[in-house]
Design a protein around this nucleic acid. Structure first.
Length: 512
RNA sequence: GGCGGGGUAGCCAAGUGGUAAGGCAGGGCUCUGCAAAAGCCUCAUCCGUCGGUUCGAUUCCGACCCUCGCCUCCA
């Protein structure tokens, strides 16, 4: 089944094919976080989108090397390091750690490589030297090194591959004071920024003097040194199209003379409560803010994954509440299937421990040829698919789901197939027409597509013993038709955050 | 000013030249002693406005209105 993706380079949907002659390995680079603060919900939309792309590639059988840089030197970082009188590493490591925690909470698979800019200074310097040698870069009187758009174009290279540029019509100027720049041309951008007193201890030695890398060069240096001069996929938020990605192309192709990236994918931004997110409007959320409101990472993930990646998405608290309910509907259905499928021990559907599931998932999903320390950091309860019986009814779910996502990640249509399946399954469950093998097959289908959705399972909280005791007491009260006591216990449990569900099979305690 | 997205039910959000997926909320019902964030059913004569093409347009074309983004740090 062909995977079609919208390529910003061609501004059209194209069938994806890897550069690898065997059609197996895929190199994917995603612009990662600048670690100067906690990442906000808008950042997360992009990272969850990148995770979806990776998971879908893997679902389609590719061996993906997923690289995400950590930008740990940059203007804002330097400013805060100075203000807080700390060191660069000390300052950035706390936010890097927080970032990775959040990434995990959102059910994202950990990138195979997470290169830090500060650990790739030699590669960055080498790249700048190459550009200087080719005459595409120049050192200004102040010591900084700039990339020359004119020289680059003079070599027959194209600047403006990702968008149409019309320099004459651009509003270059308002915020650019010409005397601040030693650049030859306004469009040129810094490769190496010469050291200034405000930088404090943040500088490196280089053949062009003390200083630090410019904004765009790190991505070119790290992506090509890890994935090669030309690689398959590069993703990021839509705001990075210009100038960041355009400049990455210029630097990389200017240095190597080869095409940089085959497919560029850009995720749209989100609004919060219909407005651009801003701290002053009070609609600025980090994942931690939402967790403090009682939402889990998987609920946030679900909401972020509910709309097409190229459309602006309106993130609302009401929507998040809806996400929680919708997810509970899926959980409920899967739990019932599990109950039914688990009742047929003879069919090999024996209960499995979380630990064994993790091992299973890790061994099955870690790409054998991936370099470094890849692996699964998704939800700990995430399960890898069992092999569904060919011809079982739920092949239709998997096929419809995959068809939807392979059409430029039509996630809304994909969720549509999931919820139709939920309704169909619930109906069969209610009518008692689902057999044990049927339930196992349905479950297998769900688990297979869940390797792409990555929403794992709801954390199945075990009720503490004292609550279990209350439950038994309530059962006895009901048996004796002491409904007053029974309802008291129900209220008591509800106050503690647990809700009782009565069913013909007995009581069930569910965490709110 | 240049370039690029959008406008589909109360909210969110897919989609198609042939008569509107899905989720949330709402309504009805079932189960229940009563309930339930348990289940089922239901919920857009209509897709920003006005024209055009067509047997037929929400879907194609044109104009207009509104809205968002990039052009400057930014996911």
């Amino acid at each position: 089944m062909a995977l079609n993706l919208f390529n910003t380079l061609s501004r059209s949907v194209q069938t994806f094919a890897p550069l690898d002659p065997h059609g197996l390995k895929v190199g994917m680079y995603c612009c990662g976080p600048t670690v100067y603060d906690y990442a906000h919900i808008g950042n997360w939309r992009t990272f969850v989108f990148a995770d979806l792309v990776r998971r879908l590639l893997e679902f389609n059988g590719y061996q993906v090397t997923h690289v995400m840089n950590i930008t740990d030197v940059e203007d804002k970082i330097i400013k805060r390091v100075r203000e807080q009188a700390t060191t660069l590493r000390l300052f950035t490591s706390q936010y890097e750690t927080a970032f990775l925690e959040d990434l995990r909470a959102l059910g994202c698979r950990e990138p195979h490589q997470k290169p830090r800019a500060t650990e790739h200074i030699p590669q960055i310097i080498a790249l700048i030297e190459k550009l200087l040698a080719r005459g595409i870069a120049y050192q200004a009187p102040d010591g900084s090194v700039y990339f020359s758009i004119d020289k680059y174009r003079g070599c027959g290279c194209q600047y403006g591959q990702l968008l149409k540029l019309n320099f004459d019509e651009m509003r270059a100027g308002e915020r650019v004071k010409s005397d601040e720049y030693a650049k030859e041309s306004i469009a040129d951008f810094a490769l190496w920024k010469t050291r200034v007193p405000e930088d404090g201890a943040v500088y490196w030695r280089s053949p062009f003097g003390e200083g630090r890398p410019g904004w765009h060069i790190e991505c070119s240096a790290m992506s090509t040194s890890i994935l090669g001069d030309t690689f398959d996929l590069h993703l990021g938020g839509e705001d990075l199209v210009f100038p960041h990605h355009e400049d990455e192309i210029a630097q990389s192709e200017g240095a190597t003379g080869k095409p940089f990236v085959k497919f560029w994918l850009h995720g749209a931004h989100l609004l919060v409560e219909g407005k651009k997110m801003s701290k002053s409007l009070g609609n600025y959320f980090t994942l931690r803010d939402l967790q403090a409101k009682g939402y889990t990472g998987r609920e946030v993930r679900y909401l972020l994954l509910s709309a097409h990646y190229r459309e602006t998405f309106n993130f609302t608290l009401e929507g998040l509440a809806g996400a929680k309910t919708a997810l509970a509907r899926i959980d409920e259905c899967v739990a019932k299937l599990r109950e039914l499928a688990g009742s047929g021990k003879a069919l090999g559907a024996e209960p499995t421990t979380i630990q064994s599931l993790r091992e299973e998932a890790t061994s099955a999903l870690t790409p054998a040829l991936s370099p470094g320390r890849g692996g699964i950091v998704g939800s700990p309860t995430e399960r890898v698919a069992l092999n569904p019986d060919p011809g079982s009814e739920d092949d239709s779910l998997v096929a419809a789901f995959q068809a939807a996502l392979n059409e430029d990640l039509n996630i809304s249509a994909a969720w549509g197939t999931v919820f139709e399946w939920v309704r169909k399954t619930n109906r069969a469950l209610a009518e008692n027409t689902l057999t044990v093998p049927g339930a196992a097959a349905a479950l297998a289908g769900w688990e297979k597509i869940n390797t792409v959705l990555g929403i794992g399972l709801a954390a199945e909280a075990e009720a503490p013993a004292e609550l279990q005791a209350l439950l038994v007491e309530r059962q006895n009260a009901r048996k004796n038709k002491d409904f007053k006591r029974s309802d008291e216990i129900r209220d008591q449990l509800k106050a503690l955050g647990w809700v009782i569900e009565d069913s013909p099979k007995g009581q069930r305690l569910k965490k709110l």
